[in-house]
Design a protein around this nucleic acid. Sequence first.
DNA 1: ACCTGAACACCGTTCAAGT
DNA 2: ACCTGAACACCGTTCAAGT
Lengths: 256, 256
Amino acid sequence: MPMSADHPGTDANPRTSDGPGAETALTKKIDPAREPLSRRTVLVAGIHLIEEDGVRQLTMRRLGAKLHVEAMALYRHISGRDDLLDGIVELVMDDLYADPEVHIESGVWQDYLTRLGHGVRRLALTYPQVFPILATRPPAAPWLRPPLRSLRWTESFLGTLRQAGFSDDAAVRAYRSFSSFLLGFLLLEVAALGSDTGPVEQADPGGPTKVNLNDYPNIKELEQGLSQDLSSVEFEESLEAMLDRIELFMRRDHRH
Amino acid sequence: MPMSADHPGTDANPRTSDGPGAETALTKKIDPAREPLSRRTVLVAGIHLIEEDGVRQLTMRRLGAKLHVEAMALYRHISGRDDLLDGIVELVMDDLYADPEVHIESGVWQDYLTRLGHGVRRLALTYPQVFPILATRPPAAPWLRPPLRSLRWTESFLGTLRQAGFSDDAAVRAYRSFSSFLLGFLLLEVAALGSDTGPVEQADPGGPTKVNLNDYPNIKELEQGLSQDLSSVEFEESLEAMLDRIELFMRRDHRH
DNA sequence: ACCTGAACACCGTTCAAGT
DNA sequence: ACCTGAACACCGTTCAAGT
Protein backbone atom coordinates (compact mmCIF):
# COMPACT_ATOMS: atom_id res chain seq x y z
CA MET A 1 0.00 0.00 0.00
CA PRO A 2 1.39 3.38 -1.02
CA MET A 3 0.46 5.05 2.21
CA SER A 4 2.78 3.05 4.41
CA ALA A 5 5.72 4.53 2.52
CA ASP A 6 5.90 7.52 4.82
CA HIS A 7 4.94 7.53 8.47
CA PRO A 8 5.54 11.03 9.77
CA GLY A 9 5.48 11.25 13.51
CA THR A 10 5.91 7.54 13.91
CA ASP A 11 9.53 7.98 14.84
CA ALA A 12 9.90 9.64 18.21
CA ASN A 13 13.36 11.08 17.53
CA PRO A 14 13.36 14.51 15.87
CA ARG A 15 14.88 13.97 12.47
CA THR A 16 18.22 15.54 11.74
CA SER A 17 18.57 17.14 8.32
CA ASP A 18 18.76 14.36 5.78
CA GLY A 19 17.64 13.56 2.27
CA PRO A 20 17.30 16.33 -0.30
CA GLY A 21 16.61 18.98 2.31
CA ALA A 22 20.21 20.16 2.83
CA GLU A 23 19.45 23.80 1.97
CA THR A 24 16.52 24.03 4.36
CA ALA A 25 18.94 23.33 7.17
CA LEU A 26 20.74 26.49 6.13
CA THR A 27 17.79 28.83 5.78
CA LYS A 28 16.28 27.76 9.08
CA LYS A 29 17.69 28.04 12.58
CA ILE A 30 19.19 25.15 14.54
CA ASP A 31 15.64 24.29 15.60
CA PRO A 32 13.70 21.18 14.48
CA ALA A 33 14.60 20.95 10.81
CA ARG A 34 11.28 19.41 9.91
CA GLU A 35 9.74 19.97 6.50
CA PRO A 36 6.56 22.04 6.74
CA LEU A 37 3.29 20.22 7.35
CA SER A 38 1.07 19.26 4.50
CA ARG A 39 -2.52 18.13 4.50
CA ARG A 40 -1.38 14.66 3.62
CA THR A 41 1.12 14.54 6.47
CA VAL A 42 -1.58 15.53 8.92
CA LEU A 43 -4.02 12.94 7.60
CA VAL A 44 -1.48 10.11 7.65
CA ALA A 45 -0.48 10.97 11.20
CA GLY A 46 -4.17 10.96 12.08
CA ILE A 47 -4.59 7.46 10.70
CA HIS A 48 -1.67 6.18 12.71
CA LEU A 49 -2.95 7.84 15.86
CA ILE A 50 -6.35 6.22 15.38
CA GLU A 51 -4.86 2.78 14.85
CA GLU A 52 -2.63 3.13 17.87
CA ASP A 53 -4.98 4.63 20.41
CA GLY A 54 -8.49 4.59 18.95
CA VAL A 55 -10.64 7.35 17.45
CA ARG A 56 -11.51 8.82 20.79
CA GLN A 57 -7.89 9.66 21.36
CA LEU A 58 -7.66 11.51 18.06
CA THR A 59 -7.78 15.06 19.36
CA MET A 60 -6.37 18.14 17.75
CA ARG A 61 -4.01 18.60 20.63
CA ARG A 62 -2.67 15.06 20.66
CA LEU A 63 -2.30 15.04 16.90
CA GLY A 64 -0.40 18.30 17.08
CA ALA A 65 1.92 16.87 19.71
CA LYS A 66 2.57 13.85 17.51
CA LEU A 67 3.67 16.20 14.74
CA HIS A 68 5.68 18.35 17.17
CA VAL A 69 3.42 21.29 16.62
CA GLU A 70 0.75 23.09 18.56
CA ALA A 71 -2.82 22.03 17.80
CA MET A 72 -3.63 25.37 16.23
CA ALA A 73 -1.09 24.83 13.46
CA LEU A 74 -3.23 22.00 12.08
CA TYR A 75 -5.95 24.44 11.09
CA ARG A 76 -3.74 25.58 8.22
CA HIS A 77 -4.38 22.24 6.52
CA ILE A 78 -7.71 21.05 7.82
CA SER A 79 -10.71 23.15 8.60
CA GLY A 80 -11.58 21.26 11.78
CA ARG A 81 -11.92 17.82 13.31
CA ASP A 82 -14.73 16.81 10.97
CA ASP A 83 -12.66 17.73 7.96
CA LEU A 84 -9.82 15.70 9.44
CA LEU A 85 -11.99 12.59 9.64
CA ASP A 86 -13.46 13.15 6.18
CA GLY A 87 -9.98 13.63 4.81
CA ILE A 88 -8.81 10.39 6.37
CA VAL A 89 -11.72 8.51 4.85
CA GLU A 90 -11.02 10.03 1.46
CA LEU A 91 -7.33 9.24 1.67
CA VAL A 92 -7.98 5.62 2.51
CA MET A 93 -10.43 5.26 -0.37
CA ASP A 94 -7.96 6.83 -2.79
CA ASP A 95 -5.34 4.45 -1.53
CA LEU A 96 -7.58 1.55 -2.37
CA TYR A 97 -8.23 3.02 -5.78
CA ALA A 98 -4.51 3.11 -6.45
CA ASP A 99 -4.04 -0.50 -5.35
CA PRO A 100 -2.88 -2.38 -8.45
CA GLU A 101 -4.18 -5.65 -7.01
CA VAL A 102 -7.67 -4.27 -7.05
CA HIS A 103 -8.02 -1.86 -9.88
CA ILE A 104 -7.57 -3.87 -13.03
CA GLU A 105 -10.01 -3.33 -15.83
CA SER A 106 -11.24 -6.79 -16.62
CA GLY A 107 -13.96 -7.91 -18.92
CA VAL A 108 -15.27 -10.41 -16.41
CA TRP A 109 -17.40 -8.67 -13.85
CA GLN A 110 -17.10 -11.53 -11.35
CA ASP A 111 -13.34 -11.05 -11.33
CA TYR A 112 -13.74 -7.36 -10.81
CA LEU A 113 -16.13 -7.73 -7.88
CA THR A 114 -14.05 -10.47 -6.27
CA ARG A 115 -10.89 -8.40 -6.44
CA LEU A 116 -12.71 -5.37 -5.19
CA GLY A 117 -14.22 -7.29 -2.29
CA HIS A 118 -10.86 -8.64 -1.25
CA GLY A 119 -9.34 -5.20 -1.60
CA VAL A 120 -11.87 -3.68 0.76
CA ARG A 121 -11.37 -6.53 3.20
CA ARG A 122 -7.62 -6.00 3.13
CA LEU A 123 -8.22 -2.33 3.83
CA ALA A 124 -10.49 -3.17 6.76
CA LEU A 125 -7.97 -5.57 8.27
CA THR A 126 -5.11 -3.13 7.75
CA TYR A 127 -6.97 -0.24 9.38
CA PRO A 128 -9.46 -1.94 11.69
CA GLN A 129 -9.96 1.19 13.75
CA VAL A 130 -10.47 3.43 10.74
CA PHE A 131 -12.91 1.14 8.96
CA PRO A 132 -15.89 1.79 11.27
CA ILE A 133 -15.44 5.52 10.62
CA LEU A 134 -15.48 4.84 6.91
CA ALA A 135 -18.65 2.85 7.49
CA THR A 136 -20.63 5.28 9.59
CA ARG A 137 -19.72 8.82 8.60
CA PRO A 138 -22.38 10.38 6.39
CA PRO A 139 -21.21 10.30 2.76
CA ALA A 140 -21.02 13.32 0.49
CA ALA A 141 -24.14 12.27 -1.43
CA PRO A 142 -27.05 10.24 -0.09
CA TRP A 143 -26.71 7.58 -2.78
CA LEU A 144 -23.06 6.93 -2.02
CA ARG A 145 -23.09 3.76 0.06
CA PRO A 146 -20.27 2.87 2.41
CA PRO A 147 -17.83 1.27 2.24
CA LEU A 148 -17.59 2.22 -1.47
CA ARG A 149 -18.20 5.81 -0.69
CA SER A 150 -16.24 7.76 -3.26
CA LEU A 151 -17.52 9.03 -6.57
CA ARG A 152 -14.62 7.40 -8.36
CA TRP A 153 -15.34 3.97 -6.95
CA THR A 154 -19.04 4.17 -7.57
CA GLU A 155 -18.42 5.33 -11.10
CA SER A 156 -15.98 2.52 -11.73
CA PHE A 157 -18.36 -0.04 -10.22
CA LEU A 158 -21.37 1.00 -12.24
CA GLY A 159 -19.36 1.42 -15.41
CA THR A 160 -17.80 -2.01 -15.22
CA LEU A 161 -21.11 -3.74 -14.63
CA ARG A 162 -22.90 -1.92 -17.39
CA GLN A 163 -20.12 -2.72 -19.78
CA ALA A 164 -20.52 -6.36 -18.76
CA GLY A 165 -24.10 -6.22 -19.92
CA PHE A 166 -25.97 -5.21 -16.77
CA SER A 167 -29.12 -3.19 -17.21
CA ASP A 168 -29.27 0.12 -15.36
CA ASP A 169 -31.50 -1.39 -12.77
CA ALA A 170 -29.40 -4.50 -12.26
CA ALA A 171 -26.22 -2.43 -11.92
CA VAL A 172 -27.78 -0.30 -9.20
CA ARG A 173 -29.11 -3.34 -7.36
CA ALA A 174 -25.71 -4.96 -7.56
CA TYR A 175 -24.12 -1.85 -6.10
CA ARG A 176 -26.53 -1.96 -3.19
CA SER A 177 -26.12 -5.67 -2.48
CA PHE A 178 -22.38 -5.46 -2.71
CA SER A 179 -22.16 -2.47 -0.37
CA SER A 180 -24.41 -3.91 2.27
CA PHE A 181 -22.65 -7.27 2.21
CA LEU A 182 -19.19 -5.76 2.61
CA LEU A 183 -20.35 -3.36 5.28
CA GLY A 184 -22.05 -5.99 7.42
CA PHE A 185 -19.44 -8.66 7.12
CA LEU A 186 -16.37 -6.50 7.58
CA LEU A 187 -17.80 -4.38 10.36
CA LEU A 188 -18.42 -7.54 12.35
CA GLU A 189 -15.02 -8.92 11.48
CA VAL A 190 -13.07 -5.87 12.63
CA ALA A 191 -15.27 -5.61 15.72
CA ALA A 192 -14.33 -9.17 16.67
CA LEU A 193 -10.73 -8.24 16.01
CA GLY A 194 -10.95 -5.22 18.24
CA SER A 195 -12.34 -7.09 21.21
CA ASP A 196 -9.06 -8.94 21.48
CA THR A 197 -6.94 -5.85 21.26
CA GLY A 198 -9.75 -3.50 22.32
CA PRO A 199 -9.65 -0.60 24.76
CA VAL A 200 -7.09 -1.90 27.22
CA GLU A 201 -8.77 -0.46 30.27
CA GLN A 202 -8.72 -3.57 32.45
CA ALA A 203 -10.99 -2.27 35.16
CA ASP A 204 -10.16 -4.88 37.77
CA PRO A 205 -7.23 -7.24 37.52
CA GLY A 206 -8.35 -10.80 38.15
CA GLY A 207 -10.21 -11.97 35.08
CA PRO A 208 -11.67 -9.99 32.15
CA THR A 209 -15.19 -9.79 33.62
CA LYS A 210 -16.20 -13.16 32.21
CA VAL A 211 -19.90 -13.38 31.47
CA ASN A 212 -21.85 -15.89 33.50
CA LEU A 213 -23.43 -18.29 31.03
CA ASN A 214 -25.33 -20.47 33.49
CA ASP A 215 -28.68 -19.17 32.32
CA TYR A 216 -27.81 -19.52 28.66
CA PRO A 217 -27.31 -23.21 27.94
CA ASN A 218 -27.31 -22.87 24.16
CA ILE A 219 -24.66 -20.19 24.15
CA LYS A 220 -22.68 -22.16 26.68
CA GLU A 221 -22.67 -25.27 24.55
CA LEU A 222 -21.88 -23.40 21.35
CA GLU A 223 -19.37 -20.98 22.83
CA GLN A 224 -16.44 -22.66 21.16
CA GLY A 225 -18.05 -22.49 17.75
CA LEU A 226 -19.12 -18.90 18.33
CA SER A 227 -15.61 -17.83 19.25
CA GLN A 228 -13.96 -19.59 16.35
CA ASP A 229 -12.64 -17.34 13.63
CA LEU A 230 -13.56 -18.61 10.20
CA SER A 231 -13.71 -15.19 8.60
CA SER A 232 -11.52 -15.89 5.59
CA VAL A 233 -13.42 -19.00 4.57
CA GLU A 234 -16.80 -17.49 5.31
CA PHE A 235 -15.93 -14.32 3.45
CA GLU A 236 -15.05 -16.30 0.38
CA GLU A 237 -18.23 -18.34 0.52
CA SER A 238 -20.50 -15.40 1.23
CA LEU A 239 -18.91 -13.31 -1.47
CA GLU A 240 -19.49 -16.05 -4.01
CA ALA A 241 -23.06 -16.58 -2.88
CA MET A 242 -23.66 -12.88 -3.36
CA LEU A 243 -22.15 -12.93 -6.83
CA ASP A 244 -24.47 -15.80 -7.71
CA ARG A 245 -27.41 -13.79 -6.51
CA ILE A 246 -26.33 -10.75 -8.50
CA GLU A 247 -26.00 -12.92 -11.58
CA LEU A 248 -29.55 -14.12 -11.02
CA PHE A 249 -31.25 -10.76 -11.13
CA MET A 250 -28.86 -9.65 -13.83
CA ARG A 251 -30.07 -12.45 -16.09
CA ARG A 252 -33.71 -12.05 -15.08
CA ASP A 253 -33.55 -8.37 -16.00
CA HIS A 254 -32.02 -9.23 -19.33
CA ARG A 255 -34.72 -11.62 -20.35
CA HIS A 256 -37.35 -8.94 -19.92
CA MET B 1 -43.52 -0.47 21.70
CA PRO B 2 -43.56 -0.36 25.49
CA MET B 3 -40.94 2.34 25.74
CA SER B 4 -42.99 5.03 24.09
CA ALA B 5 -45.49 4.75 26.94
CA ASP B 6 -43.58 7.27 29.03
CA HIS B 7 -41.48 10.09 27.67
CA PRO B 8 -40.08 11.96 30.61
CA GLY B 9 -38.58 15.28 29.68
CA THR B 10 -40.43 15.36 26.41
CA ASP B 11 -42.93 17.82 27.82
CA ALA B 12 -41.33 21.18 28.43
CA ASN B 13 -43.83 22.27 31.06
CA PRO B 14 -42.96 21.13 34.60
CA ARG B 15 -45.67 18.69 35.52
CA THR B 16 -48.06 19.70 38.26
CA SER B 17 -48.87 16.96 40.76
CA ASP B 18 -51.06 14.48 38.99
CA GLY B 19 -51.66 10.75 38.92
CA PRO B 20 -51.07 8.66 42.04
CA GLY B 21 -48.45 11.04 43.40
CA ALA B 22 -50.75 13.29 45.44
CA GLU B 23 -48.94 12.63 48.72
CA THR B 24 -45.55 13.51 47.28
CA ALA B 25 -46.85 17.00 46.68
CA LEU B 26 -47.42 17.23 50.43
CA THR B 27 -44.10 15.92 51.62
CA LYS B 28 -42.09 18.10 49.28
CA LYS B 29 -41.92 21.87 49.04
CA ILE B 30 -43.65 23.97 46.40
CA ASP B 31 -40.64 23.25 44.17
CA PRO B 32 -40.71 21.08 41.03
CA ALA B 33 -42.85 18.16 42.15
CA ARG B 34 -41.04 15.71 39.92
CA GLU B 35 -40.67 12.11 40.92
CA PRO B 36 -37.04 11.22 41.59
CA LEU B 37 -34.90 10.12 38.67
CA SER B 38 -34.42 6.48 37.91
CA ARG B 39 -31.92 4.79 35.65
CA ARG B 40 -34.71 4.05 33.21
CA THR B 41 -35.85 7.67 33.14
CA VAL B 42 -32.34 8.81 32.37
CA LEU B 43 -31.88 6.25 29.61
CA VAL B 44 -35.20 7.04 27.95
CA ALA B 45 -34.45 10.75 28.01
CA GLY B 46 -31.08 9.93 26.48
CA ILE B 47 -32.74 8.07 23.62
CA HIS B 48 -35.03 10.98 22.88
CA LEU B 49 -32.16 13.43 22.99
CA ILE B 50 -30.19 11.32 20.53
CA GLU B 51 -33.12 11.06 18.15
CA GLU B 52 -33.80 14.77 18.32
CA ASP B 53 -30.30 16.20 18.11
CA GLY B 54 -27.89 13.35 17.29
CA VAL B 55 -25.42 11.45 19.45
CA ARG B 56 -22.89 14.23 19.46
CA GLN B 57 -25.36 16.42 21.28
CA LEU B 58 -25.90 13.82 23.99
CA THR B 59 -23.81 15.39 26.72
CA MET B 60 -24.20 14.95 30.44
CA ARG B 61 -24.97 18.60 30.80
CA ARG B 62 -27.60 18.74 28.10
CA LEU B 63 -29.21 15.55 29.31
CA GLY B 64 -29.31 16.97 32.82
CA ALA B 65 -30.97 20.13 31.55
CA LYS B 66 -33.58 18.07 29.74
CA LEU B 67 -34.43 16.37 33.03
CA HIS B 68 -34.35 19.68 34.93
CA VAL B 69 -31.37 18.59 36.92
CA GLU B 70 -27.68 19.41 37.04
CA ALA B 71 -25.43 17.03 35.10
CA MET B 72 -23.85 15.70 38.29
CA ALA B 73 -27.16 14.26 39.45
CA LEU B 74 -27.07 11.76 36.60
CA TYR B 75 -24.10 10.01 38.14
CA ARG B 76 -26.40 8.55 40.76
CA HIS B 77 -27.91 6.34 38.08
CA ILE B 78 -25.21 5.88 35.49
CA SER B 79 -21.52 5.55 36.08
CA GLY B 80 -20.54 7.78 33.16
CA ARG B 81 -21.21 8.54 29.54
CA ASP B 82 -20.13 5.11 28.37
CA ASP B 83 -22.48 3.44 30.80
CA LEU B 84 -25.23 5.72 29.53
CA LEU B 85 -24.71 4.56 25.96
CA ASP B 86 -24.42 0.91 26.96
CA GLY B 87 -27.58 1.25 28.98
CA ILE B 88 -29.44 2.74 26.05
CA VAL B 89 -28.36 -0.12 23.81
CA GLU B 90 -29.44 -2.64 26.42
CA LEU B 91 -32.79 -0.94 26.92
CA VAL B 92 -33.54 -0.94 23.23
CA MET B 93 -32.65 -4.62 22.92
CA ASP B 94 -34.86 -5.51 25.87
CA ASP B 95 -37.64 -3.54 24.28
CA LEU B 96 -37.32 -5.62 21.16
CA TYR B 97 -37.32 -8.77 23.26
CA ALA B 98 -40.61 -7.75 24.81
CA ASP B 99 -42.18 -7.00 21.43
CA PRO B 100 -45.03 -9.50 21.07
CA GLU B 101 -44.89 -9.18 17.29
CA VAL B 102 -41.40 -10.58 17.31
CA HIS B 103 -41.03 -12.95 20.17
CA ILE B 104 -43.37 -15.78 19.44
CA GLU B 105 -42.10 -19.31 19.89
CA SER B 106 -42.85 -20.94 16.61
CA GLY B 107 -41.85 -24.34 15.36
CA VAL B 108 -41.00 -22.97 11.93
CA TRP B 109 -37.58 -21.39 12.01
CA GLN B 110 -38.21 -19.41 8.84
CA ASP B 111 -41.12 -17.68 10.56
CA TYR B 112 -38.99 -16.94 13.56
CA LEU B 113 -36.16 -15.40 11.55
CA THR B 114 -38.53 -13.42 9.35
CA ARG B 115 -40.32 -11.93 12.33
CA LEU B 116 -37.04 -11.23 14.05
CA GLY B 117 -35.61 -9.56 10.98
CA HIS B 118 -38.64 -7.33 10.61
CA GLY B 119 -38.54 -6.55 14.32
CA VAL B 120 -34.95 -5.35 14.12
CA ARG B 121 -35.76 -3.33 11.03
CA ARG B 122 -38.70 -1.70 12.81
CA LEU B 123 -36.35 -0.88 15.66
CA ALA B 124 -33.81 0.64 13.29
CA LEU B 125 -36.43 2.79 11.57
CA THR B 126 -37.94 3.89 14.90
CA TYR B 127 -34.56 4.88 16.34
CA PRO B 128 -32.45 5.65 13.29
CA GLN B 129 -29.95 7.66 15.29
CA VAL B 130 -29.59 5.03 17.99
CA PHE B 131 -29.16 2.11 15.64
CA PRO B 132 -25.61 2.94 14.52
CA ILE B 133 -24.58 3.04 18.18
CA LEU B 134 -26.12 -0.36 18.65
CA ALA B 135 -24.16 -1.49 15.63
CA THR B 136 -20.72 -0.17 16.49
CA ARG B 137 -20.28 -0.22 20.25
CA PRO B 138 -18.13 -3.15 21.37
CA PRO B 139 -20.42 -5.88 22.74
CA ALA B 140 -20.04 -7.44 26.18
CA ALA B 141 -18.58 -10.64 24.75
CA PRO B 142 -16.58 -10.97 21.52
CA TRP B 143 -18.94 -13.57 20.08
CA LEU B 144 -22.00 -11.37 20.52
CA ARG B 145 -22.64 -9.91 17.10
CA PRO B 146 -24.57 -6.72 16.57
CA PRO B 147 -27.33 -6.01 16.04
CA LEU B 148 -28.42 -9.11 18.05
CA ARG B 149 -26.06 -8.22 20.81
CA SER B 150 -27.75 -9.41 23.98
CA LEU B 151 -27.25 -12.77 25.64
CA ARG B 152 -31.00 -13.31 25.70
CA TRP B 153 -31.41 -12.79 21.99
CA THR B 154 -28.46 -14.90 21.06
CA GLU B 155 -29.69 -17.65 23.36
CA SER B 156 -33.16 -17.50 21.87
CA PHE B 157 -31.77 -17.51 18.33
CA LEU B 158 -29.52 -20.50 18.79
CA GLY B 159 -32.10 -22.42 20.81
CA THR B 160 -34.82 -21.97 18.22
CA LEU B 161 -32.63 -23.10 15.37
CA ARG B 162 -31.27 -26.13 17.18
CA GLN B 163 -34.77 -27.13 18.12
CA ALA B 164 -35.68 -26.85 14.45
CA GLY B 165 -33.04 -29.42 13.66
CA PHE B 166 -29.97 -27.30 12.99
CA SER B 167 -26.62 -28.81 13.84
CA ASP B 168 -24.41 -26.82 16.21
CA ASP B 169 -22.31 -25.66 13.33
CA ALA B 170 -25.24 -24.69 11.13
CA ALA B 171 -26.85 -22.73 13.97
CA VAL B 172 -23.69 -20.72 14.54
CA ARG B 173 -23.27 -20.04 10.84
CA ALA B 174 -26.88 -18.93 10.61
CA TYR B 175 -26.35 -16.57 13.52
CA ARG B 176 -23.39 -15.03 11.74
CA SER B 177 -25.09 -14.69 8.38
CA PHE B 178 -28.19 -13.24 9.91
CA SER B 179 -26.26 -10.68 11.97
CA SER B 180 -24.10 -9.49 9.13
CA PHE B 181 -27.06 -9.19 6.76
CA LEU B 182 -29.14 -7.14 9.19
CA LEU B 183 -26.20 -4.96 10.15
CA GLY B 184 -25.19 -4.13 6.60
CA PHE B 185 -28.63 -3.59 5.19
CA LEU B 186 -30.08 -1.58 8.05
CA LEU B 187 -27.01 0.55 8.65
CA LEU B 188 -27.20 1.65 5.03
CA GLU B 189 -30.92 2.17 5.22
CA VAL B 190 -30.82 4.43 8.26
CA ALA B 191 -27.80 6.26 6.83
CA ALA B 192 -29.80 7.08 3.71
CA LEU B 193 -32.64 8.15 5.97
CA GLY B 194 -30.37 10.46 7.95
CA SER B 195 -29.00 12.25 4.90
CA ASP B 196 -32.44 13.70 4.26
CA THR B 197 -32.93 14.84 7.83
CA GLY B 198 -29.22 14.83 8.66
CA PRO B 199 -27.17 17.42 10.53
CA VAL B 200 -28.95 20.58 9.50
CA GLU B 201 -25.85 22.71 9.28
CA GLN B 202 -26.49 24.28 5.86
CA ALA B 203 -23.07 25.84 5.43
CA ASP B 204 -24.05 28.24 2.66
CA PRO B 205 -27.63 28.98 1.67
CA GLY B 206 -28.08 28.64 -2.05
CA GLY B 207 -28.06 24.94 -2.85
CA PRO B 208 -27.06 21.97 -0.71
CA THR B 209 -23.50 21.76 -2.12
CA LYS B 210 -24.57 19.66 -5.05
CA VAL B 211 -21.86 17.34 -6.30
CA ASN B 212 -20.63 17.99 -9.82
CA LEU B 213 -21.23 14.82 -11.78
CA ASN B 214 -19.77 15.90 -15.10
CA ASP B 215 -16.80 13.57 -14.74
CA TYR B 216 -18.96 10.65 -13.68
CA PRO B 217 -21.22 9.77 -16.59
CA ASN B 218 -22.39 6.43 -15.19
CA ILE B 219 -23.42 7.93 -11.88
CA LYS B 220 -25.04 10.80 -13.70
CA GLU B 221 -27.15 8.52 -15.85
CA LEU B 222 -28.11 6.25 -12.97
CA GLU B 223 -28.61 8.96 -10.36
CA GLN B 224 -32.36 8.52 -10.36
CA GLY B 225 -32.14 4.81 -9.75
CA LEU B 226 -29.48 5.31 -7.09
CA SER B 227 -31.62 7.78 -5.20
CA GLN B 228 -34.77 5.69 -5.35
CA ASP B 229 -35.81 4.11 -2.09
CA LEU B 230 -36.80 0.49 -2.55
CA SER B 231 -35.72 -0.58 0.91
CA SER B 232 -38.88 -2.40 1.90
CA VAL B 233 -39.00 -4.53 -1.21
CA GLU B 234 -35.28 -5.15 -1.24
CA PHE B 235 -35.27 -6.04 2.43
CA GLU B 236 -37.92 -8.65 1.86
CA GLU B 237 -36.11 -10.15 -1.09
CA SER B 238 -32.70 -10.14 0.53
CA LEU B 239 -34.05 -11.61 3.73
CA GLU B 240 -35.65 -14.46 1.84
CA ALA B 241 -32.51 -15.06 -0.19
CA MET B 242 -30.57 -15.30 3.02
CA LEU B 243 -33.05 -17.73 4.52
CA ASP B 244 -32.66 -19.88 1.42
CA ARG B 245 -28.92 -19.85 1.85
CA ILE B 246 -29.21 -20.76 5.52
CA GLU B 247 -31.48 -23.63 4.58
CA LEU B 248 -28.86 -24.81 2.13
CA PHE B 249 -26.04 -25.24 4.59
CA MET B 250 -28.48 -26.49 7.18
CA ARG B 251 -29.47 -29.37 4.91
CA ARG B 252 -25.92 -30.00 3.73
CA ASP B 253 -24.79 -30.29 7.33
CA HIS B 254 -27.61 -32.70 8.04
CA ARG B 255 -26.77 -35.06 5.26
CA HIS B 256 -23.27 -35.49 6.58
C1' DA C 1 -31.50 10.27 50.22
C1' DC C 2 -30.93 13.07 46.62
C1' DC C 3 -29.12 17.00 44.36
C1' DT C 4 -25.82 21.14 43.69
C1' DG C 5 -21.47 24.33 43.50
C1' DA C 6 -17.15 24.59 42.72
C1' DA C 7 -13.28 22.79 40.77
C1' DC C 8 -10.05 20.10 37.60
C1' DA C 9 -8.33 18.40 33.40
C1' DC C 10 -9.19 18.29 28.84
C1' DC C 11 -11.70 19.48 24.54
C1' DG C 12 -12.37 22.33 19.62
C1' DT C 13 -11.77 26.60 17.71
C1' DT C 14 -10.65 31.87 17.13
C1' DC C 15 -7.54 35.43 16.43
C1' DA C 16 -4.06 38.65 17.25
C1' DA C 17 0.72 38.33 17.76
C1' DG C 18 5.25 36.49 17.01
C1' DT C 19 9.31 34.84 13.87
C1' DA D 1 4.47 32.01 5.21
C1' DC D 2 3.96 29.43 9.00
C1' DC D 3 3.39 28.70 13.77
C1' DT D 4 2.21 30.06 18.80
C1' DG D 5 -0.11 32.20 23.21
C1' DA D 6 -3.87 33.39 25.14
C1' DA D 7 -8.55 33.10 25.43
C1' DC D 8 -13.48 31.30 25.07
C1' DA D 9 -17.09 28.09 25.40
C1' DC D 10 -17.99 23.64 26.36
C1' DC D 11 -16.84 18.90 27.78
C1' DG D 12 -16.76 14.55 31.56
C1' DT D 13 -16.04 13.65 36.14
C1' DT D 14 -14.89 14.29 41.39
C1' DC D 15 -16.18 15.49 45.83
C1' DA D 16 -17.41 18.10 49.66
C1' DA D 17 -21.34 20.60 50.86
C1' DG D 18 -26.18 21.67 50.99
C1' DT D 19 -31.38 20.41 51.86
